Each structure stands twice: as structure tokens, then as C-alpha cells.
Computed example of a mutant assay.
Amino acid sequence: MEVIAIQKSALDGMTNELKALLELTENATMKYISIFKEEKWLDNQEVCLMMKITKRTLQTYKDKGLLPYSKLNRKNYYKLSDVRALLEAGQPYNTNDNGFTDE
């Protein structure tokens, strides 16, 4: 076991810096909390499972503007209400058993 000794002032400085970083992180995420509390958001996999479609079909929905989405950290998210609305309206494209899309 290795023991490393540092001065108390250095430890206090590191502790203060970590607290400041934690506060910055909390402040940065606070602006997104209200967005996620208002509505449930789904990722690609959850949407595909819910709609029983392939990832390619989901991409087609996005490309044609049929399913709005938001991008956060290079990941797409979809509002549950938008997915439900598309399901209720009837999926514009259906996939075959082999995964290809009928257009």
C-alpha cells in the first residue's frame, strides 16, 4: 500500500475546486431539467421498439419530417407525445418481415 502525504492547504484547494466544478455542472444541467420534466423523451431504440420499426424506417421518418426530434450530445431524442401522435395517425410506411420498407 502506498501512502501519499500532501499539505492540508493543497487538499483544501483541491476540495474547493471540486466543489466549484460540481456547482458549475449543476448549474449547466438545471436549464435542461424543466425540458425533461415536462415531457418524456425517448431515444432511437425506444422509439423503434415502441413503433415496431427498424432504425432505417426511423431515419426515413426523420428525413421526411414525419417525426420531430432533438439532438443532445450527438444523440437523437423524440417526444413521447410525437411518437404517439404518429402511431395514432397510422405509420406512413410499414416494414416487411425482412426489414425493408414499403413506400
Rank of each mutant, 00 (worst) to 15 (best):
N44G: 11
T29S: 05
T57F: 10
E2V: 05
N76H: 11
L49Q: 14
I6V: 05
S70M: 15
W41Q: 07
Y78Q: 09
T60A: 14
T15A: 14
D63N: 14
E39D: 09
F36E: 04
L80P: 04
S34G: 09
M1R: 06
L80Q: 15
N98G: 07
Y69F: 06
L21F: 08
R84D: 04
Q45H: 15
E38W: 07
D102Y: 13
Y69R: 09
L18C: 06
Y93Q: 01
K75H: 01
N94A: 13
E88R: 15
Y32L: 12
T57M: 14
T60D: 09
I33G: 03
A10S: 09
P92W: 15
M51T: 00
E88F: 10
K75L: 02
K71A: 06
E103Q: 13
F36V: 13
K75N: 03
Y61H: 08
D63S: 12
G13W: 01
A10N: 06
T29I: 07
L24A: 03
P92Q: 15
A89L: 09
Y61K: 04
N27E: 06
S70E: 08
L18T: 05
K75V: 07
D12G: 02
Y32T: 10
E23T: 00
G65P: 00
M50F: 01
K52Y: 08
L21C: 06
S70V: 13
A5I: 11
L86I: 12
R74D: 06
M30K: 03
D63G: 02
R74H: 07
T25H: 04
D97K: 05
E103T: 11
G90N: 02
Y78V: 10
N27I: 01
L86V: 07
I53C: 00
K71H: 03
I35W: 05
N94S: 10
G13S: 13
E39I: 07
Y77M: 08
E39S: 14
Q45C: 08
Q91L: 15
D63W: 09
A20P: 09
K37P: 05
D102C: 11
R74K: 13
E17D: 14
S9Y: 02
E38N: 14
Q91F: 12
W41S: 09
K8M: 06
G13T: 11
F100S: 14
T101Q: 14
E88S: 14
Y69M: 11
T54C: 10
K52V: 10
M14T: 05
D97C: 07
L42C: 07
L21G: 03
N76T: 09
E88N: 13
K19C: 00
